[in-house]
Amino acid sequence: MSAPLLSVKDLRVVFSVGGTLSRLRGHVTAIEGVAGVSFDIAKGETFALVGESGSGKTTLARTLNGLQKVASGSIHFDGKDATSMGRAEMKELRRRAPMMFQDPVGSLSPRLDVRALLAEPFRIHGMSDRDLDAEVRRLLTLVGLPVDFASRYPHQLSGGQARRVGVARAVALDPQLIIADEPTAGLDVSVQGEVLNLLNDLRDRLGLSMLIITHNLHVVRQIADRTAVMYLGRFVEMGETEAIFRSPAHPYTAALLSANPEPDPDRVHDRIKLPPEVPSVMARPSGCEFHTRCPFAQDLCRRNAPPLRVNGGHQLTCHFPMNTPAQAGLEQAQ
């Protein structure tokens, strides 16, 4: 296998909280938003990050793009160390690994029309000498919008159309990796399908890699080759998407999958119920950090942090993985 496009090793991101007073009182002054995460994304691969709000998904994505400072660990993009890059190199990295932000309409400036929005990446990266009108036409066609949309403003676009403009901006400068934060959140199901089809299609046509952040598991299954499940800033399970959906090994992954309401009124749900109290990264639980909500937690889980188990491309951190036949009933039905 060739060298991965993106390689992240033991990445930590720390936020400082509170002021001098809390330090003097001996309170927590630093929290880890991302707490030691390692993964690779190969060329042409789609990698999904799933997890609940506050699990650190967006922080991780922002860090890859240089929008958040790295506390320790390394990020290599196309062989180059991104943690030691200067401004110019970082700008070049953002050109090749652009980010699509969450809110489709809100991430477009309301004062710019679509032509200006699509020409903006070229201006920022000093490429205004290109025929911008031709580029705008090319991009609109690429994402399946009529060429006359160039004169519209964001408020005149539907959510799906605005998302297409966002995709066009992201692919404008021949990127290698697209980082998409909740690309389909807030879109109707029929439009969600259109956007996912577009992303899948562009990936195949342009040979892109993608990092997709979402909490919609159905989206993950349709788009991602590999998936990582995040909890309190760490990966609790990572592997091939299909393998994770077929037989989740970490109780948290299993609970997430079983929490997915299915459009079938007669389906009997055999759910793993989690207490809704998510611990805070300000006060991380001892041992396995999931033990406060885990229905299978034992004494060992409360005392010792579980080791990282690696089995081929699949890895997880759990003392008692769910791979016994007795627990197979919790798998997502096929």
Partner: peptide, 13 residues
């Protein structure tokens, strides 16, 4: 259209 009804990956949603 609901991807929840698809239990495996499809080429085109």
């Amino acid at each position: 259209c609901d991807p929840a009804r698809l239990h495996e990956r499809v080429k085109h949603l």
